[in-house]
């Protein structure tokens, strides 16, 4: 199995601030990787660079072998993004939102069948004719993720997908993300320890734009001699201060 994502010394600098300082990372196809860190750790900037939303200052990154700078048109066909803020067309219905995204990526016939399949998979049948602005926060997030996967991406980026959701909505969304793991590579950014612990194959701990540790939970526990991701995270973050 090849690598879905490869980055080499990826740097993003804004005037006097370094948002990401030399990220080197390899993510295998079919893997779910969690970028874990507090606010301002550089998680969202990393996602932005990997999805061609912003250009790296230094270094290089590839998605399924395509360079994010030189071959951005192809990268955009390979990735799906669910941004941090719920990004749906408010006056369109759930079905229209999905049709809109499907039509951007797929042929007409494929788009129609993909819409029906996605509505079913995400349990949105009851709301398909409802305007997006009338949905609850949890269902808006669901729709946002459904819109990100409807183009059949190879790599899916979920930026803080459960931010602000209640515990039930969060758990329900975890189940949807778990189900997606079989079909695509997923990069999840979060600052919820339990979310990374529950979903990720490997965890990348970031602070102040730097990668402090990468590994499975077990590897990170062995590395720090602590149990549970929260203690591991605190141990790593404090050691680096």
């Amino acid at each position: 199995m090849g690598y879905a994502i490869k980055t080499e010394n990826l740097v993003k600098r804004y005037k006097d601030k370094t948002a990401v300082a030399g990220l080197t990372l390899e993510v295998k196809e079919g893997e779910l990787i969690a970028l874990l860190g507090v606010n301002g750790a550089g998680k969202t900037t990393t996602v932005k660079m990997l999805t061609c939303l912003t250009k790296p200052t230094e270094g290089r990154a590839e998605i399924m072998g395509c360079d994010v700078v030189k071959d951005s048109a192809n990268v955009k066909r390979l990735v799906g993004v669910s941004p941090q803020d719920t990004s749906v067309a408010e006056n369109l219905t759930v079905k229209e939102n999905l049709e809109f995204m499907a039509d951007l990526y797929l042929s007409k016939d494929k788009a129609r069948s993909s819409v029906e399949r996605t509505i079913k998979a995400f349990g949105l049948e009851e709301f398909s004719g409802k305007k997006a602005k009338l949905l609850s926060g949890g269902y808006k997030r669901k729709l946002s993720i459904a819109m990100a996967i409807i183009g059949e991406p190879k790599v899916l980026f979920l930026d803080e997908p459960t931010l602000g959701l209640d515990v039930l909505a969060r758990r329900q969304l975890w189940r949807e993300i778990e189900a997606l793991k079989e079909n695509m590579t997923i990069v999840l950014t979060t600052h919820y320890m339990e979310e990374a612990q529950a979903l990720a194959d490997r965890i990348v701990i970031m602070t102040e734009g730097n990668v402090k540790a990468i590994g499975t939970l077990e590897e990170l526990e062995n590395m720090t001699g602590r149990k549970g991701l929260e203690d591991v995270f605190v141990s790593i973050a404090e050691r680096m201060e």
């Binding site: 990735v79 941004p83 067309a89």
Partner: peptide, 12 residues
């Protein structure tokens, strides 16, 4: 809003 962010990363 974030809607355009989604579209900027699409093939549009």
């Amino acid at each position: 809003g974030a809607f355009l962010t989604r579209l900027y990363s699409s093939p549009m």
